[in-house]
Design a protein around this nucleic acid. Structure first.
Lengths: 185, 185
DNA sequence: CGTCCAAGATATCTGTTAGATATATCTGGC
DNA sequence: GCCAGATATATCTAACAGATATCTTGGACG
């Protein structure tokens, strides 16, 4: 239930913006929600099947032979509202960077430094991306009732990237203070 | 490979601190790495089995009938170093809060406000926890070569929680500016 | 002293999921 | 028009989380 229902939420949400094929759905989720959400084909197809059975989406003739375009139904819209109101299911944390840093003494101070610099650079790139996106959307979608909500999710990405940068600097400084790790290997 | 190997990293890392039973391993991962990592029993047992077969851990008589304590071997330590050096595998993002906010127009401004306040409160609690933990550890583990690395991971949590708080405030302000959502339902 | 119960510890089992892969269909260069 | 590569569609497999089943231990109470 828990996780599956959030897949349904994402799919119904995407279809609520416009009808799409399964493939386009994946693209849309990746490109639009990509900063905070992802779905794989392995999820999309069976979930679409289930939603169709429940009458929340309808299958139409697709753009090419054998393909289907999915349209959200009235009951699908209602279901989406329900799902959005359900409690949030969080995914178990799995931060590979922190896992490596935690065992930093074994990994070696130098490698840790490299990891931190890389993370910082990544965050910098994300930051620029978010900024650009926010500026573009503010103009293109001006006045849209969805705009504040979209900006909100972009802002979350911004803040998170800024946090990574500030943290990486602090951590790098902390490493300078303890260079006493000649480190085996 | 990709995914499993990070489970092996966590397990070998934990065992590198001290020998443990599978149960204790889970506890340790939850309590010590919990802020950024998690493993389930469903993973731990088969992974321990695999590590034993490869000779990276050894099974010893456990503290009670039928239980086993696992000890990391020489080759296990080498393997841990290897694994720590491998490229980081990231988990696909799945942020249920942002998913709901993205479809905020459908969910309704009021519910969005509640979600933001809740997220902010959660972050505040985490922040206090991280601060306490950092203070305790700085004293108890003073001089330990692992301390800077541990503090680094805690600091990551701190920065991330602070970012959530700042973001939530900004998002709430953004919602105030657009109260024009009488919202169906 | 035994025996019952609750908490602790151990292990497996099941359904969900990501990502790879297999298969089919287009589109443009020649 | 036909081939190569891009695009699109669908399935399959092994990783995975969380629930559950089983066993162990200590201690309350007769």
């Amino acid at each position: 239930m828990a996780r599956r229902s959030q897949t349904e939420t994402a799919i119904l949400g995407a279809l609520s913006m416009q009808p799409m094929t399964a493939y386009a759905l994946r693209e849309a989720i990746r490109d639009v929600l990509g900063h905070f959400w992802s779905e794989s084909f392995g999820q999309i197809y069976p979930t679409l099947g289930a939603l169709e059975q429940q009458g929340h989406v309808e299958r139409r003739e697709g753009p090419r032979a054998g393909s289907s375009t999915f349209v959200i139904t009235e009951s699908g819209t209602t279901r989406l509202r329900e799902l959005l109101s359900e409690p949030i299911t969080t995914v178990p944390p799995r931060n590979g960077l922190l896992l490596r840093l935690f065992f930093g003494r074994t990994l070696g101070a130098q490698k840790c430094r490299e990891l931190l610099l890389e993370a910082k650079a990544d965050a910098g790139r994300s930051l620029a991306e978010y900024d650009g996106l926010a500026r573009t959307l503010s103009v293109e979608e001006e006045g849209s009732p969805d705009l504040p909500y979209t900006l909100m999710t972009i802002s979350a990405g911004r803040h998170s990237a800024e946090a990574v940068i500030a943290w990486a600097d602090e951590a790098l400084a902390l490493l300078e203070d303890t260079p006493a790790n000649g480190e085996s290997q």
